[in-house]
């Protein structure tokens, strides 16, 4: 009502005030209100009628998009939670697998160590036996060679000594001994 009074007064007092000054510090001229308000309402009405559905539709689409993104985020979060659970479970499995593998490795290492020690012991025994056999063989061979060399030298020495000592007297003595020895034999006892 107050606004209406102001509009009427403004319409009646149009020629008495300074046109460069508005009657109110806050309100425009009365005629501006008179034409401006309906025009504004008209514009708003048109906007509401024609632009409203489009805006409403856009807002709905945006809402749907945001909701979809929220849903996707929620789904991703759920998947991440499930994955996290799996990872935690896997982590637990990995820890137990690690323990099992380490235990297996320890067992294998112990077995290998025992086998290796046994093998080395066997090989050592074989090498020792072979070395002893080689030593015995070398000893035997050297002994044989030494005996052969002694025999060879002795044979040569015997030849030289005997041949050198056979003078005529010795020859005659050998012949006489032979004749006496053969003469002493009886028939059928000769060799």
């Amino acid at each position: 009502m107050r606004l209406l009074e102001i509009l009427i007064r403004a319409a009646g007092e149009g020629h008495e005030h300074d046109v460069t000054q508005t009657p109110s510090k806050f309100l425009p001229e009365g005629y501006e209100l008179l034409f401006g308000i309906p025009a504004s309402l008209l514009v708003f009405g048109l906007l509401y009628k024609f632009a409203g559905p489009v805006i409403k539709k856009g807002m709905a689409a945006r809402t749907a998009k945001i909701q979809a993104e929220l849903d996707a985020g929620e789904a991703a979060r759920s998947a991440a939670d499930i994955e996290a659970v799996k990872i935690r479970e896997a982590k637990g499995d990995i820890a137990s697998e690690r323990s099992r593998i380490l235990a297996d490795a320890d067992a294998q290492a112990a077995t290998m160590l025992a086998d290796g020690r046994a093998r080395i012991k066997t090989e050592l025994a074989e090498v020792e036996a072979k070395a002893l056999a080689d030593i015995a063989s070398v000893q035997s061979r050297v002994g044989d060679e030494l005996r052969a060399e002694i025999a060879r030298l002795s044979s040569a020495a015997v030849d030289q000594v005997v041949t050198g000592s056979l003078d005529d007297a010795t020859h005659q003595e050998l012949i006489e001994n032979f004749i006496q020895r053969v003469g002493a034999q009886k028939a059928g006892a000769s060799k």
Binding site: V182, G183, Q185, A187
Partner: peptide, 14 residues
């Protein structure tokens, strides 16, 4: 010596 040896061989072999 030959004579004695022949005799010795005769004795030994018959």
């Amino acid at each position: 010596q030959q004579t004695r040896l022949a005799a010795a061989l005769t004795n030994a072999t018959g």
